[in-house]
Write a protein that binds this DNA or RNA. Sequence first.
DNA 1: TCGATAGTTCAGCGATTATTGAAATATGGA
DNA 2: TCCATATTTCAATAATCGCTGAACTATCGA
Lengths: 120, 120
Amino acid sequence: MDSTTALTAFAALSQEGRLEVFRLLVKAGPDGLAAGLIAERVGRAPNTLSAQLNLLQQAGLIESRREGRSIIYSACFDQVSDLIVYLLEDCCAGEPCVAISVQAAADRALCCAPTSSTSS
Amino acid sequence: MDSTTALTAFAALSQEGRLEVFRLLVKAGPDGLAAGLIAERVGRAPNTLSAQLNLLQQAGLIESRREGRSIIYSACFDQVSDLIVYLLEDCCAGEPCVAISVQAAADRALCCAPTSSTSS
DNA sequence: TCGATAGTTCAGCGATTATTGAAATATGGA
DNA sequence: TCCATATTTCAATAATCGCTGAACTATCGA
């Protein structure tokens, strides 16, 4: 991930409403949520939300697919992990203290995670 | 790290100029750089830069100390690692694919890093 | 085809943000 | 004490951002 992409991602996450929407979609998992449902959950007008979703999508943090009359939004986990790796490598290379904390956090996440792809 | 703090950090990093300054300070390491030197490096007026440094500092991403007539700014690596952990845990808990990528990146960072605190 | 539902796009407005010049503060040396 | 250096603060302006109402597009079912 280059600086420009990271910048766009930071900008997308730098507003309360958008961060809230993003976190909601992350929690919703790969199945995602319909735009209308999101609007209802966060209590915002559909057009306001549409703009927020648009910005998150342009930053590559979420993606959309049509399903009947609804448009389903879901988080792009790849982009999030790229962003994290950017912060770790491109911003903090050479600072082991950061890498150590992050490694510990990743370990925790993996140990508690439901065994998904690699079972062993 | 709570959402509000993360929001402030994202906002601080969401502008080209500030991200540039932040990356410069990260590369400079714990010794940091004098405000005037940073201004020179990034080619911005001292007062403009002062505002940018202020914002980064309020977000907890950098800190300052006076040294003679200069004020030295340096990156707060703790805050960066907190931000990464926030993205990983609070945003992406339950998504092992993210944790796996991040773990690999942390491993790379540690293996290439100069052995610092824990020698063994 | 028509009407209802689900979302988006667009223009405009109010609010926030970024930058600038000028003035102020703090430090060190003569 | 006085001056030069290093940086910040302040007020003002220009640019950007976020939200809203109204109009538009797409899909489904009768």
